[in-house]
Amino acid sequence: MEQNIGPVAGPAGLYVHIPFCLGKCSYCAFVSWPCRRPPAGYPAALLSQARQLAALPWSRQRCFTTIFIGGGTPTMYPAAVLNELLAELRQLFAISPAAEISLEANPDTLRPELLAELRRGGFNRISLGVQSFTDELLQKIGRRHDAVGARQAVAWARQAGFANLNLDLIYGLPGQSRRQWAADLAVALELAPEHLAIYQLTPEEETPLGRAVAAGELVLPDQDLCAEFEQDARRSLLTAGYEHYEVANYCRPGYACRHNLNYWHNGSYLGLGAAAVSCLAGLRLMNVASPGRYRRLLAAGRAPYAEAEALGLAASFRETVIMGLRLRRGLRLAELEQRFALTPRHYYGTILDELIAQGLLVMDHERIALSERGFALANQVLHRLV
């Protein structure tokens, strides 16, 4: 039963970071820690920080409409641990009865009984890190599952009652051909997820894959081929009835990821866990990255923050514009002006005029958005507005 905590000032999201994996993929630059078994004391540390944050007046004035437990691989923990964590969060915060409650998972950690228990515990959306349905490519990037395992995980999730399913796919993998990418898209469409997140592989310097690419040991598809991959995905998914609602995200009508929409609208959220970030009306707090230090600080009754930043009005406006333009529908000008007393025209001046003249942005008296051409070149366009 949700706690009745009084007047609500506005909606917010809750992110919980569980940064443990059975193994670290060769391309992964995120904060994650490979281990055979995740530490038993970490969920208790999450709840200790949750109690600290729940005591803030800011938190007590919010209705939390989304919860996202991400990683890492949260499903390394038993369902009973994750369900207890969710139940405790419901007691500490005002969680909407219609909340979207998402859980990230890798196929190799899933079993039918675990998924059924998670569904009974209140999770209603699952996000599977599939990345590819081509075994050769999965092996090249250090994934622990194969195509059969990915298909099986989707089938088990459906059997458990998950009616809101996301699949992550990556293109631009080492040696990937256009035919392999078409085959991946065909399998994804056959599995009929409600949501697809489709990313281009980015070789980060500090990762094994990045080092292998720099040394010439692996060759990635060039940018022209990657552009074809992106267009192939867009064409296939739009034909199948998906909406391309954000630069890298597609959904069935009504299934946009509500938690991520809050990020793209530069909304407020709390972050629990090592390396998690909270954003409270312009105040940004980042937790320490080390899970061990995170636990020790909380065990000592201290806040686990590594840094804090108060964003000024102009910085918040700029960030809101950049994040919001990632959405197909863009931003409402009246909402921007009401929130910041600023408009894109006044803030960006000639830069805005140039992008409109180049056909990369469109703006009328109601909205500003990326054009069709600008949407395909989103990263380059948004870089001009930083």
Results as ranks from 00 to 15, higher is better:
E2T: 11
G6V: 06
G6F: 14
P7C: 10
P7Y: 04
A12M: 03
G13I: 00
G13V: 06
Y15G: 02
K24P: 13
C25A: 11
C28R: 09
R37E: 15
P38G: 08
P38H: 04
G41N: 12
Y42Q: 07
P43K: 10
A44C: 03
L46D: 05
L47A: 08
S48I: 00
A50F: 14
R51L: 09
Q52K: 12
L56P: 06
F68W: 04
N83W: 12
N83P: 02
E84Q: 14
L85M: 03
L86P: 03
F93I: 01
S102R: 02
E104Y: 07
E104G: 06
A105S: 09
N106W: 05
N106A: 07
R111F: 11
L114S: 13
L115R: 09
A116L: 07
R120A: 13
N124R: 10
G129T: 10
Q131V: 11
F133P: 06
D135P: 05
Q139R: 15
I141A: 09
R143Y: 09
A150Q: 05
A153G: 07
R158V: 02
A163L: 09
A163I: 00
A163E: 13
A163T: 05
N166K: 01
L167M: 12
L169R: 06
I170F: 13
P174K: 14
A182R: 15
A192H: 14
A192V: 01
L196C: 00
I198F: 02
P203Q: 13
E206F: 12
G210C: 10
R211P: 02
V213A: 13
D222M: 14
L225M: 15
L225Y: 02
Q231V: 03
A240F: 10
A248W: 02
A248R: 06
R252S: 02
R252Y: 03
P253N: 12
G254S: 11
R258Y: 03
H259G: 06
H259T: 02
H265Q: 15
Y269N: 04
L270T: 03
A274H: 12
A276M: 02
V277D: 01
L280R: 10
N287A: 09
R293T: 09
R295W: 13
L297R: 08
E309I: 04
L311Q: 05
G312D: 12
G312I: 11
A314W: 09
V321E: 00
G324K: 07
L325D: 02
R329F: 04
G330Q: 07
G330R: 12
R332C: 09
L333R: 15
E335H: 15
R339M: 07
T350L: 13
D353I: 04
D353P: 06
L355E: 05
G359A: 10
A369L: 15
R373Q: 14
F375G: 06
A378N: 06
